[in-house]
Design a protein around this nucleic acid. Sequence first.
DNA 1: CCCCAGTCCTGCGGGC
DNA 2: TGCCCGCAGGACTGGG
Length: 277
Amino acid sequence: MPELPEVETMRRGVLPVVGSTIKAVISPPCERRPIAMTPRVDQIDRVLKGQRIAAIERRGKRVMLRSGNGELLILEPRMTGLVLIADPPTSEHLRLRIRLTGGPHRDLWFWDRRGLGTVRLLDAEQAASWLQDAPLGKDALEISALELRQQLGTSKRPIKVALLDQKHVAGIGNLYAAEILHVAKISPLLSCDGLSTRQWTRLHAAIGQVLLEAIRYEGSTLSDGTYRNALNTSGSYQNHHRVYDRQGKPCLRCRGQAIERIVQAQRSTFYCPKCQT
DNA sequence: CCCCAGTCCTGCGGGC
DNA sequence: TGCCCGCAGGACTGGG
């Protein structure tokens, strides 16, 4: 579930470890099948041991640790991954432990209940080319209105489906796509090439508005309770959702129409058929 | 180009 | 009450 607001909240939460030195990178004992990690953890350990954490960055839904030597450790939480400096929710689903020294925290954890997350280490050269050539669009908070339209404008896919495609714009997932389209008053069913200039402008504004608003509330912790910030604390944006998981309930804008749930590209879409056209 | 179904995986909740 | 199935969806893959 973590999308841009949750991942940005994780990033901000682990910022205090910038300047710390990496003592070791190890796999905590975990009986489950290991998560996808390249290269192997002992290789990652060999490369990063003794290095300073120079920065913690984010692109789309990934948290990236930049080492003093310019290597990039990319943590991709996917559905249930968390990046923490506090004690993780359980000891059972720990996937990576980065032991630290010379700063306020002893450990940086990657915890992932379902184990769909990934860890990847790139050297400085690979990192530079990955940041440039990765099949990953501009970050949703960086993209301009013009770029957004250039990326999506000729597509015949429904706008909701296209917004989820990370190679056009990175960071928007199923929950925020629904929230954004409601704020923009655009039907999720509308074909991208059918959006008017006015609608593109509204969409771009809604992306910024919704994502920043969600970051202010530290993201959405859904009923399964999985998502936590770096201090293992819940977000509260779930209390401000306009449409997500509100099928049958009245639209908060028009007050009358019931929110509908439909399926697009095998995913739930929530919207107000009256407000979103 | 786009779509769809299947894959990874765990925990929960609906239905019987 | 208990058990099983299906659903949740981020990213990716293979076939059409």
